[in-house]
Amino acid sequence: MEFLLNPYYMQLITFIIINAILGISIYLTLSTGQLSLGNAGFMSVGAYTSALLTLKAGVPLYAAVPLGGAAACLLAAIIGIPTTRLRGIYLAIATLGFGEVVRVIILNLKITNGALGLSSIPSMGVMLSKGIAAFGLAGGIGGISVRQLGSIAVILILALILGFLIFFALRLSSSRLGRAFAAIKADEHAAEVSGIDTRYYKLLAFFMGAFVAGIAGGLAAHITFYIGPKDFAYHRAVEILLFAVLGGSDVVWGPILGAVLLTVLPEVLRFATEYREMIYGAILVLMMAFRPQGLISESTLALWRTKLTRQPKIAGQDKVTRRTTP
């Protein structure tokens, strides 16, 4: 366990969790069959809103992050009401365009400081360490410094948020709403004919995806001290898409697995960094050709369920955690 306290790995874990949350955001919109490439844009709205609220208005962190999510959601309403009428590639390209427009606007606004970005954003880790120090633990406990304690607290908070989102997504898939989503994903026409208000559900999924992306953006802003328009460009949108493509978008575990793999692999493959983008490109092509459903799909989950346990089916959650940490 010693190595887990190394700040390098702790930082990596926070990035994994942020990316997993982004994975959930694209999963939510994809669960109605809508491919939105605008999540990087929503992420930037969340990040800038939250960062500016803390920097300029002195809003506390715990309020600023959800407000960032809300801002992303608001924008999703403006853009989503017309765009969710679009299908397939039209939606993909419109949302891609939306991301670009948001980037250009951020570059032009005074308050966002243009290309220079926002620096010295209040950091969650620093704040929590201070809190812990004020609690009388300035010396740390058992050889763990107060900064490490701060990082641990950050990870715990992020993990809690992620856990909640996973729980929500799992509940969703077995709810009425989730089944409506699935029906739209399978065949929009059939769903409409059988009385599902497809526009309403698609819009709802779009909102939820935007909100979660906004939250992820807000969190990301407060763990890295700095945000700039470059962080949310086209490459970021493709990266988020990769989470879902690699991991799979049938079940919520898919994009999460994708996010974990794609955050950890670059660090493991540091020696091969020049080939990383090439590998990413190849992954996209190969996955589409050989396993378009991603690494994890309903059937793999079912298979593992019967393999690992002889018990009757219960909620998939603990099965999966068992599977990933043998």
């Binding site: 493709v238 898409l241 020049e274 080939y275 990383r276 983008e277 090439m278 990413y280 490109g281 190849a282 992954i283 996209l284 092509v285 190969l286 589409m288 050709a289």
Partner: peptide, 11 residues
Amino acid sequence: STIGVSIFLES
């Protein structure tokens, strides 16, 4: 898939 090709070719 073609986004994959584009990233591959660019790098």
